[in-house]
């Protein structure tokens, strides 16, 4: 596979970039759902972020069968990026009996699936809304628990599967069930910029990247490095960021005001605010952090009136204004 497009060179799409950075700082946030049309740079952004992250310890990435020699302590591998194709079968996702070895050599062995390969990195699913429900269920379950348990065909395997789940889809082509949507930590809506200057810039950068990928990557090297540093600093700081009680109360008020179902909204809102604060080098969560991540964390959790045309984002913004005024 060729070089990835530089993350900083993506024109606009600030909300998506912010959500991905937050997820990279704190993977426990529970993944990002990106709504938008094709060709808006969704997969480019995710791929770029994975390529941007510094190589990780080989022992923490991918799948290591029991009893195999563990990789040397200092060995590093690139952060895994796994693309889950539409129509992937359950076998391919969770892993299955290794048919090759079972039939060829009569050995019962586990053939790791995509979840195992994604361990430690990103699992990207284009068109989540078209994926079969039982696979989505399974993915979200594993993403939440961080462990893949396989009990089938006489196999009994469990292996770590910690990854940032990134889904994308176009709501015009079918809704995602609300109970699944709720399991995604953050959600963003992407749209192609509608001004000429940005569009020209996008085309220019795509073209430049295509013709001379190395030179193009080189010209973005310094801003890429800055992003890497931000993420690294954020990761180191995130657990130390304080969340004042007043901010917790504010998050809870906001969730109640917009009518977000369940506790997951509040938890995610809090975690995302903390990750954002860490990303920006703040020592504690402030109102501004909550206000910036609230649309990302809550937008997909609002109960939608069938006949209500008001967008979720608008409702959240209104609630934020009310809170600020109170």
């Amino acid at each position: 596979m060729g070089k990835a497009f530089p993350f900083s060179a993506i024109v606009g799409q600030d909300e998506m970039k912010l959500a991905l950075l937050i997820a990279a700082v704190d993977p426990r946030i529970g993944g990002v759902m990106v709504f938008g049309d094709r060709g808006t740079g969704k997969s480019t952004a995710v791929r770029a972020l994975a390529a941007l992250l510094p190589p990780m310890s080989a022992a923490l990435a991918g799948f290591h069968p029991e009893g195999a020699v563990p990789p040397p302590a200092k060995a590093t591998v690139p952060v895994p990026f796994v693309d889950l194709p539409l129509g992937a079968t359950e076998d391919r996702v969770v892993g299955a009996l290794d048919l090759e070895r079972a039939l060829g050599a009569g050995v019962k062995a586990f053939e790791p699936g995509l979840l195992a390969r994604a361990n430690g990195g990103f699992l990207y699913i284009d068109e989540v809304n078209l994926l079969e429900d039982h696979i989505v269920d399974l993915l979200l379950d594993v993403a939440a628990s961080g462990e893949n348990v396989v009990e089938r065909e006489g196999l009994s395997v469990r292996h770590p599967a910690r990854f940032v789940l990134v889904g994308s889809g176009n709501p015009e082509e079918g809704e995602l069930r609300p109970q699944l949507l709720d399991r995604f930590g953050l959600s963003v809506e992407v749209r192609t910029p509608q001004d000429l200057a940005s569009r020209v810039e996008i085309l220019k950068r795509c073209d430049a990247f295509e013709r001379t990928p190395e030179a193009f990557a080189e010209s973005w090297h310094s801003s890429e490095k800055k992003t890497v540093k931000r993420i690294a600093r954020g990761r180191a700081a995130v657990s130390a960021v304080a969340v004042p009680d007043a901010m917790l109360a504010r998050a809870a008020q906001l969730c109640m005001a917009v009518g977000a179902d369940g506790l997951r909204g509040e938890l995610t809102l809090m975690r995302a605010s903390r990750a954002l604060a860490a990303l920006e080098g703040a020592g504690s969560v402030a109102t501004e952090h909550i206000a910036r991540v609230a649309p990302l964390a809550l937008r997909h959790r609002l109960r939608r009136g069938v006949l209500d045309e008001t967008g979720s984002t608008v409702r959240i913004e209104r609630a934020l204004e009310d809170l600020a005024a109170a």
């Binding site: 049309d37 094709r38 808006t40 749209r191 192609t192 569009r199 085309l203």
Partner: peptide, 13 residues
């Protein structure tokens, strides 16, 4: 880029 914008072609591809 301008033509794509005018014709409502949103995909960057």
């Amino acid at each position: 880029a301008a033509t794509a914008l005018a014709l409502g072609v949103d995909s960057a591809r």
